[in-house]
């Protein structure tokens, strides 16, 4: 499969170009905080509940809040029906996503409580864990959870010997490497970094730099979306 033509990718993007991204803050009425994200072909919704009492009780911590993160793909989110429910892949993604978000949350403010994050993938097109983390981070802010910063995430990878930003499904499935990154853009702290495929050390460094630039653009969009929630209402 040929991915690069005249310096452009299969969806006509440049190697360092993100897909179109849209954030909608407060998409759910009942949740304490929520965010709907469209990231290229991905459609993701995140809901945050809490801080609230922990059930089952034995999970609670005496001096801090616990964070629970559930990543789930809808059965209709992919071309061939996905068998519903947690599987090896979604359990792993839930874990790494929680660990990507956890470091910025000030858990000590809420002893004996839980902050529950639910991420539902309604439509998948590569990079769902990143889209989920971006949505979850905005939803947490919307819920009023104290955080040191917003976490932003995007994927980088390699197709046709070229390092590219924000892979689409074809590039992810048939490309040479896929590397999702999540970070706090302000501090530069990387909180998630996984890699599937092969990159040389040089390519890795190049990819990481590109990923950081991508995350920075996303961070700006997250911030803008949150500010817009209240600006928008004023201009009715």
């Amino acid at each position: 499969m040929e991915f690069m033509k005249n310096g452009k990718r299969i969806d006509d993007r440049l190697p360092n170009e993100l897909r179109p991204i849209k954030f909608e803050v407060g998409a759910l009425e009942r949740a304490d905080g929520s965010c709907y994200v469209e990231h290229g072909g991905n459609k993701v919704i995140a809901a945050v509940y809490g801080p609230r009492a922990v059930h089952p009780r034995h999970l609670q911590e005496a001096n801090r809040a616990i964070i629970r993160y559930r990543y789930n793909m809808a059965s209709f989110s992919v071309e061939e029906r996905k068998r519903p429910g947690p599987d090896r892949r979604s359990v792993e993604i839930s874990k790494v996503s929680r660990e990507a978000i956890d470091p910025v949350i000030i858990k000590e403010f809420y002893p004996r409580s839980t902050i529950d994050i639910f991420v539902e993938i309604l439509q998948a097109d590569a990079g769902t864990r990143s889209a989920g983390i971006n949505a979850a981070s905005v939803a947490l802010a919307d819920a009023g959870v104290p955080m040191r910063g917003l976490i932003s995430s995007c994927a980088v990878g390699k197709v046709d010997e070229t390092v590219v930003l924000d892979l689409v499904k074809e590039e992810d499935n048939y490309g040479q490497a896929d590397m999702p990154i999540a970070m706090d853009v302000r501090t530069g702290e990387v909180t998630l970094l996984q890699m599937d495929g092969h990159l040389t050390l040089d390519e890795f460094e190049q990819a990481l730099e590109l990923g950081k630039i991508g995350c920075a653009s996303i961070a700006e969009m997250q911030r803008e979306a949150l500010i817009q929630k209240y600006r928008g209402e004023e201009n009715e």
Binding site: A141, M147, G149, D184, R186, Q222, R223, I227, Y230, E234
Partner: peptide
């Protein structure tokens, strides 16, 4: 807006 809207960080 008499006060600025800010986000974490």
């Amino acid at each position: 807006v008499d006060k600025t809207i800010v986000v974490p960080g």
